[in-house]
Design a protein around this nucleic acid. Structure first.
Lengths: 159, 159
DNA sequence: TCTGTAGTTGAGACTGAGTCTCAATTGGCT
DNA sequence: AGCCAATTGAGACTCAGTCTCAACTACAGA
């Protein structure tokens, strides 16, 4: 992971005032790949029990605004956040059994999209493209039950 | 719209027991293009004030299960339901200013999807593909404010 | 380094959307 | 017509997220 100073610098240049709470939220966020707001709330509270839930939500909204994280509505459970800082655009493929999320790029899509937008005279701003299926290993284990919301592992705090 | 008898017949063959409440919910649902659960609750209550909110949600879940409606998570507000009874697969293009939703088909996508799924050895089940932008008329009127959840018009009860 | 102030925070009440429970009711097979 | 499993209404409950406001704090400027 990038030195954290870089991220802080970047936040400052985006007019974001740095507080201890924000530093913590951002640090913990970058330690994840995908996470839900509530998971992050729980996680940061292990480092600072007094941090308010509202603060986490506010910070996430701010980071999203600044383009550092993206909010994704997957099919099950609450929205998932993803840190996209210095990351190329990609779409998602999700396993409905184990909740695994694969990110992939497919430039040919982007072209088709532009075509569709032109067809309807839309000025395209964003898009979401999500594929849902069953991953190879779940196919093998032949599980029957349907997806729980994807589960995350807590990693160590980034220095 | 199709004669309602047809729809009822179809429900029966899908093992769905017909009750007055279900008949009402289904009739009102097919009167819309896209609607949210709460909009439908409010709407059916104009015909039967005593209908329980839970009944509407249960019926929607059932119709979804049976493949008669689809649930879409658009970017703003609660999920949107769409009656897909006897309707070909399509994706969506939404205007972030006025909430207009355009349905379009793009078979070339389906092929690309299969390719991606194969690449990761996924068995593909479904997908969602949503484009967001600004429609031609909103571009002209140059509105600044961002999307309210799409707004619906209540149509007359289908006979 | 100090200060003023606009921006940020914690706490907790509040909201919206959806789920659950359970006793009472009902559809539809026989 | 009678039976009983499925369905319903009512309302309590949950979960995720928002809002309010007094107290606190980052940081630009003196």
């Amino acid at each position: 992971m990038k030195r954290f100073v870089e991220v802080e610098q970047w936040l400052k240049t985006h007019g974001i005032r740095l507080t201890d709470q924000r530093r913590l939220v951002v640090r913990r966020a970058v330690a994840y790949l995908h996470f839900t707001a509530e998971e992050l709330v729980k996680d940061v509270r292990e480092y600072d029990a007094s941090i308010a839930r509202g603060t986490v939500y506010r910070t996430l909204a701010m980071l999203q605004q600044a383009g550092m994280v993206e909010k994704h509505d997957f099919r099950y459970g609450p929205p998932n956040y993803e840190v996209t800082f210095a990351k190329a655009h990609h779409d998602h493929l999700m396993c409905l059994h184990c909740g695994e999320i694969i990110e992939f790029q497919e430039p040919r899509w982007e072209r088709l999209q532009d075509e569709v937008a032109k067809r309807y005279k839309y000025q395209l701003l964003t898009h979401t493209h999500k594929l849902y299926g069953v991953c190879a290993s779940c196919q093998r284990s032949g599980e029957k039950r349907l997806a729980e919301p994807p589960h995350l592992h807590v990693e160590e705090m980034v220095a």
